[in-house]
């Protein structure tokens, strides 16, 4: 997995709450058996005016000029500023895959849906929670200053603005550790293989019906 330590990038504001994972990457793109290539269809129904399909040439499709990621000033954005309950709905990991493939490295919101939040960490994408007022402040700043960039520092758990303001965010220790070091968490779990086997042995005594194959 890609590590995340510190990142400075242009911010794009997506000013709507309850952005669901169907919106982040619509179902027709979930037919892929790969993990990559979802970026061009990120926010497909918001971004284009026609209906997207796998295999369709996206460069020929009419863009929705009102959508934030189509506006000149947000080209190259790598930090997404979002509203409450971002990533709700389906558990599809294609959502973080699409955000990451598009070029986002961090998402800032007042709250995230649980499964989406968890999925981001597995893909080198940092979802971070700031207070509602802080997010409001950032929305105002991004909209008023062209080229507004933020620095996200996972080591120190901070977000710094161009004018020197620093916000602090919380993240649990295990996720932080894995992301900072780009660790494969399956490998980490397998270090506890003995504990898993011991649990199974005990459980087979307590609840043998859970192990019909013996």
């Amino acid at each position: 997995m890609k590590a995340f330590t510190k990142h400075t990038g242009l911010v794009a504001p997506l000013d709507r709450s309850n952005v669901d994972t169907d919106m982040i990457i619509p179902k027709q793109f979930l037919k892929s058996i790969k993990r990559t290539g979802f970026g061009p269809n990120l926010f497909d129904e918001l971004r284009y005016l026609d209906e997207g399909q796998p295999g369709k040439d996206n460069s020929q499709r009419p863009l929705n000029p009102d959508f934030i990621l189509n506006q000149a000033r947000y080209q190259g954005a790598s930090v997404l500023l979002a509203r409450a309950n971002f990533g709700c709905g389906s558990s599809r990991e294609h959502a973080p895959w699409a955000l990451e493939d598009f070029g986002f490295r961090a998402i800032i919101a007042p709250s995230f849906a649980d499964i989406f939040y968890n999925n981001c960490f597995k893909n080198g994408l940092l979802p971070l929670v700031l207070k509602e007022e802080e997010v409001d402040e950032l929305f105002r700043a991004v909209e008023s200053v062209e080229g507004y960039a933020l620095t996200v520092d996972l080591e120190n758990q901070t977000v710094s603005t161009p004018d020197g303001k620093v916000y602090h965010f919380e993240v649990d220790e295990f996720r932080r550790h894995c992301l900072l070091n780009g660790l494969d968490d399956i490998g980490v779990t397998l270090e506890d293989a003995d504990a898993i086997s011991a649990y199974e042995a005990r459980r087979k005594q307590e609840a043998p019906w859970l192990f019909p194959a013996g």
Binding site: R35, D114, K122, I186, T189
Partner: peptide, 23 residues
């Protein structure tokens, strides 16, 4: 019972466990 992402599907296949925080 709860939903998981694809990385966790792989994690469960490989280890029969999930890394969790209690809700």
């Amino acid at each position: 019972a709860h939903g998981i992402g694809t990385s966790e599907v792989e994690h469960v296949l490989a280890t029969q466990c999930l890394v969790q925080q209690k809700s």
